[in-house]
Design a protein around this nucleic acid. Structure first.
Lengths: 117, 117
DNA sequence: CTAAGTGTATTATGATAAATAGTACAGTTA
DNA sequence: TAACTGTACTATTTATCATAATACACTTAG
């Protein structure tokens, strides 16, 4: 479900945040579904509970999950979230495309390769 | 010419590398044109010369500039480089597009927005 | 009620990368 | 020769990440 890549330069907690975001937005986790507890996920991944805690705090801050003290963490209602996330991706894609165009990449090639996906 | 964003999580030397790459590939700097010396650019940006040195060493390693001891750093001939760089961009773009498609972004919208650039 | 599970907070420690500071040396050029 | 260049080296500081070890409050199954 969650895999940590130690060759990745990004910190562990960030990899976990990204992974869970994707799982939620792809629909692999349903709203109000409980996600693994801080301690159990730490045990499963053989990392420190504080690292999981940091990831979950960030996910809650961004509205992807909600926390109930004493009970656990749950997937938030995704209304609006998915759209917001898609907009973030669109911005990143357009920024990259702009730079690519500036150094002479043909727009047709970009479109063609995307269509071929 | 070069601006450092201290809110950026990326290290300073990396921002400088990226910035100079872009300037070269956009044609803002011509082959064999001299770029600022390690010390002068450090002075201008109010950062340590060692940081500039690190950026320049990386740029030389990747073939974007060449160094003449005692004289300075110069823009390299860009044959091949631009194509290589465009391929890097294409990979990044396709990776992002894949993720966007996975969370439900319509491919038509992506293509449409790129065409509108 | 109790025990075992939750989240949360705190402090200390180690590891690493990034950046700074200072100095030194060698090559180039006006 | 003086004033530029690049390069190399060591030491230090700073910030982030991760770990370690507790402690406390809340919830729930028994």
């Amino acid at each position: 479900m969650i895999i940590i890549d130690y060759r990745d330069t990004r910190p562990i907690y960030e990899q976990i945040v990204e992974r869970i975001k994707t799982l939620i937005l792809k629909g692999a986790m349903q709203p109000d579904e409980q996600i693994p507890s801080v301690r159990s996920l730490a045990m499963e991944l053989s990392i420190n509970p504080n690292t999981i805690q940091k990831a979950y705090a960030e996910l809650e801050r961004e509205g992807f999950i909600y926390t109930v003290k004493g009970r656990g963490n749950f997937v938030a209602d995704d209304s609006g979230l998915a759209q917001k996330r898609r907009n973030e991706y669109m911005e990143q894609i357009l920024a990259l495309v702009k730079e690519a165009l500036e150094i002479g990449m043909p727009k047709e090639q970009i479109i063609h390769e995307i269509e071929a996906l």
